[in-house]
Design a binder for these strands. Structure first.
Lengths: 344, 344
DNA sequence: ATAGTTTAAATAAACGATTTAAACGTCGCA
DNA sequence: TGCGACGTTTAAATCGTTTATTTAAACTAT
């Protein structure tokens, strides 16, 4: 590697000052057009690489934005991340991604690292049990935070998420409309605001239809295919013999359908199953999955936009922003059959 | 936000110099133990945050490592990334992740950004058509690169990947052993070294069993579930009536099985299907997927290790490092039936 | 011509850490 | 008493930018 090329290298070879070079490269009108061109050309010729650490040391803007979610490989977050990525890209911001796997400690480490790097802001789907102090740590050090998907009590940072309660009630109503009365709710946890909202949506829909709510029909569990797959055994052995399941998300639903199929039943005919999120995969599952679109792309896009706006000093997008979910009806749900799920 | 706390803040409140504080916080034996403790305590009390940009400006080590792959949401890369993450975490390195979606330009932008941020090194699965210069750009500017999963011709940076040719021949042999003779190869491209290697493995296995190779049985396509799903139509309408498919990866295989099921055939009975990678999902698919484990975790772990070693000046791990794949036999493959795939 | 403007470029002081060489105080020992 | 040695601390230079302030030169208007 040859000697590092810096502003002063360009300046010296051209016989101007570093100030002029700095301004020229950023196309400042303070530098004569001819000089600007000469400088830019030379920078290219020498293979100059802009040193952001030096610049941001001076300007205290790094162009770095952190994004931390439970698990970036989870397709639900994946779709949000894609939206965030394309929005940030447009503003030429670099983004640093991380999983917290619901470890508060891992999340705090990430926030600290981001602060050390001089991150301009952070978008996060907070880990379960995140203490408000951890968010305040960021805010107090001049790094604004935006929440997505999950909220934290007692904190008024802007948050963007789908309307979970409403969304789940859509799915539940759909099943009720098909004649189902014994409807289980599979997967997820009640430890997050999301979890409580979803359960509430399920309960509300049942109540409105005058169906008694049976807590025994709530089967919590991991929010993964594996989780759904494993829940199938429990589901099929419930004494109440549910004829339908409202699942936490598409992954759980697909896992559950696999588990049901493994037991010789046909999902969509013997048991109705709804998902949540409307991942790409939902449409090509067998049977294709009836689900609820949760506005992931919209959540990601607006969260990123909100952060960028905040950074550029425009308006303050505080408060909760709910995205309205929509029903997607496919083959995994069907009218109630009379003999319950031991049909086959 | 209160006034920023820096080394000098600590120094002043304690009546020592910044040099002492700097050394103390890094536990240098040059500073008396009592002083060290006093300083660390004060740092904590004031909520001091280490400024990495300032430090790395001076030291030219940033603690940042870049990782760029085709698509971080692809579970194949996901498993590699998890391994990299845990290896880098151990060395307290921050890593910056990015997709290139096989856009050479996006990839080059990433490398440039990383250079600007002073990245210490980069681990990449290069985009299709990556010119060697793009890798050299990194190397020439003091940022060593390690390749994973895919190689680039005419470049001798270290690379870690599974032995694709061998792996696919395992799968093909398995099918041949079950009596299959008309075996299609579904998904992927021949534009990458990986693609050519895999096709070679398939061809080799057929030749060794004295089966004529029919190029019409090669169905290239996207490496996704969607791709496999869509390939099903083509597959089922081939005049050669294949009884088995060697798929590019598990995603394609699962998609293909879905497509086959949609057409009323039973994968594993009417048509045998093999995957590649052995993702978590393979075990819970219906039917469970016969596949080839491709050593993702091993690839990620050793690539990260190699980079860290290189950075700390130990040995040079140059050249190709092949990980040996292993067969995982499950329900999606079975003995040949006599009437081809129009059985049902 | 002369003072007043504009325009273009240069000077020099930050930004917040690290690091080398030098300074300081204390002590032991001749 | 004086000297070197040792353990501790510090002053000052440095990393590569940005930017407020100056300076210099070139026009303008009177």
């Amino acid at each position: 590697m040859a000697q590092k090329v810096k502003l002063s290298t360009i300046a010296e070879t051209l016989g101007v000052s570093t100030a002029t070079v700095s301004l020229a490269l950023r196309d400042s009108p303070l530098v004569a057009l001819a000089t600007r061109d000469r400088i830019k050309e030379q920078a290219r010729a020498l293979g100059y690489i802009y040193n952001r650490r030096a610049a941001s040391l001076r300007t205290s803007r790094s162009g770095i934005i952190g994004v931390v979610v439970h698990d970036i490989m989870n397709p639900f977050y994946g779709e949000i991340l894609k939206a965030i990525e394309s929005e940030l890209d447009r503003d030429r911001q670099t983004f640093i991604l991380s999983n917290h796997y619901d470890s508060v400690e891992k999340q705090r480490n990430f926030i600290e690292t981001l602060l050390q790097l001089g991150g301009d802001g952070v978008i996060m789907s907070p880990a379960i049990g995140t203490p408000p102090e951890d968010i305040l740590l960021a805010e107090d050090n001049g790094m604004p935070a935006i929440l997505i998907a999950r909220s934290i009590d007692g904190l008024d940072v802007p948050i963007f998420r789908g309307d979970d309660s409403y969304g789940i009630s859509l799915a539940t109503n759909h099943l009720i409309g098909l004649g189902h009365r014994v409807i289980a709710m599979v997967g997820g946890t009640d430890q997050t605001s999301t979890g409580r909202d979803r359960y509430q949506g399920y309960v509300n829909a049942l109540r409105k239809a005058n169906i008694e709510v049976d807590p025994g029909l709530r089967i919590p569990g991991p929010r993964s295919k594996q989780g759904g797959f494993e829940a199938a055994v429990h589901f099929l052995s419930l004494p109440q013999k549910p004829t339908a399941a409202v699942c936490w998300n598409d992954l759980v639903a697909i896992g559950l359908m696999n588990g049901i199929a493994r037991a010789g039943l046909v999902p969509g005919r013997d048991v109705s199953v709804t998902g949540y999120d409307d991942l790409e995969e939902a449409a090509i599952a067998t049977p294709s999955l009836t689900t609820v679109w949760n506005g992931q792309s919209e959540v990601g896009r607006s969260a990123a936009r909100a952060l960028l706006d905040k950074l550029s000093g425009s308006h303050e997008p505080d408060g909760i922003h709910l995205i309205k979910p929509e029903m997607r009806i496919r083959q995994s749900t069907g009218p109630l059959k009379h003999n319950g799920h031991d049909a086959a």
